[in-house]
């Protein structure tokens, strides 16, 4: 096969990426697949044990619990953060004074690194001194609406997971920017036509803006599914060991513990591969389902 000089140049430029991909992604991925069928403690050679790791996982209560926690988080965090991101993008797309300032302002939380953010939220949700419960107290003192209970956010096993779901709305900045860019693509002519027909702003949002935005929504939802299944840093810092009662023990925390606390790389690799398959299947169906609904301008 003879390559044109242009193709050669192209391949040459793609080479660094390709090397990086092979060394840091492809090889570890395949190696992890092999390891998942072995007993491997890092320091002694891996011993082939067939499907034992997978069998043990099926019987492992903590595995199912962490998987359940992760699904719970994803099921609520993905729609919630999507709605918040689209809502913010729509608001920030209106022509008001100081538009650029607001756009920057609402993006700012996305710039805060995960660790300080986790520690900050720990204090906000503190059961005794947290500002969230303080706010509820003030509300209750004034008898404005009705008496709101003050949950023990971090200590109550039924509540703790939801703290993380609430936190997921805080970091929608990146998705919001992508939605904003998507909104710029919507042809003005469509709105003008709708105006002539006397459509209301709400109708325009649902009939023009959101359909035109659908490819961007699909992209963001898929990315958001992937990242929410990988949630690690915030719970790892905020709820050591998944306290209380492992209600915040997420899948990737278990992988980490299996690999680096228990030195059980085979087990951790098996879990990693199961996670990969779950995300792969979810992404596949998300694409398949949404592809039908998504409006591509080129068509």
């Amino acid at each position: 096969m003879k390559l044109s000089s242009q193709s050669k140049a192209g391949l040459l430029f793609a080479l660094p990426w390709f090397i990086g991909f092979s060394v840091f992604l492809l090889y570890p991925l395949l190696r992890a697949f092999y390891n998942s069928f072995t007993e491997y403690t890092v320091l002694t050679p891996a011993v082939w044990i067939g499907g034992e790791n997978y069998q043990a996982l099926m019987k492992d209560k903590v595995f199912w619990q962490s998987l359940g926690n992760t699904f719970y988080y994803a099921i609520f965090a993905v729609p919630l953060s999507t709605i918040v991101a689209i809502g913010l993008a729509l608001l920030l797309n209106t022509k008001v004074k100081g538009q650029a300032f607001y756009r920057t302002f609402f993006f700012l939380p996305a710039l805060v690194p995960a660790v300080p953010m986790a520690i900050l939220w720990l204090w906000l949700f503190n059961g005794e001194k947290g500002i969230v419960n303080y706010g509820i107290q003030v509300l209750n003192d004034h008898n404005w609406l009705f008496q709101v209970p003050k949950p023990n956010w971090l200590g109550d096993k039924t509540v703790a997971k939801n703290v993380l779901v609430i936190m997921s709305t805080w970091t929608v900045g990146h998705a919001m920017v992508i939605y904003l860019a998507g909104l710029q693509q919507v042809p003005l002519a469509l709105y003008e036509a709708a105006d002539l027909d006397g459509a209301s702003p709400i109708r325009k949002t649902f009939k023009i803006t959101l359909p035109m935005l659908s490819p961007v929504i699909m992209f963001n939802v898929i990315m958001s599914i992937i990242t929410s299944f990988q949630i690690f840093t915030q719970p790892y810092i905020m709820f050591p060991g998944g306290a209380p009662e492992r209600s915040t023990y997420f899948y990737s925390m278990y992988i980490y513990d299996a690999a680096f606390r228990d030195n059980n790389m085979g087990y951790a690799s098996a879990m990693g591969w199961i996670m990969f398959l779950i995300i792969f299947i979810l992404t596949f169906f998300a694409r398949k389902y949404m592809d039908k609904k998504v409006h591509y301008e080129a068509n």
Binding site: G242, A243, P244, E245, R246, R261, D262, N263
Partner: peptide
Amino acid sequence: TPIWPQWADEIKSATEVING
């Protein structure tokens, strides 16, 4: 025993269950 780190975490989890 080499499983102590995991064992200790299990006991910690158990104390949370007990206190709860």
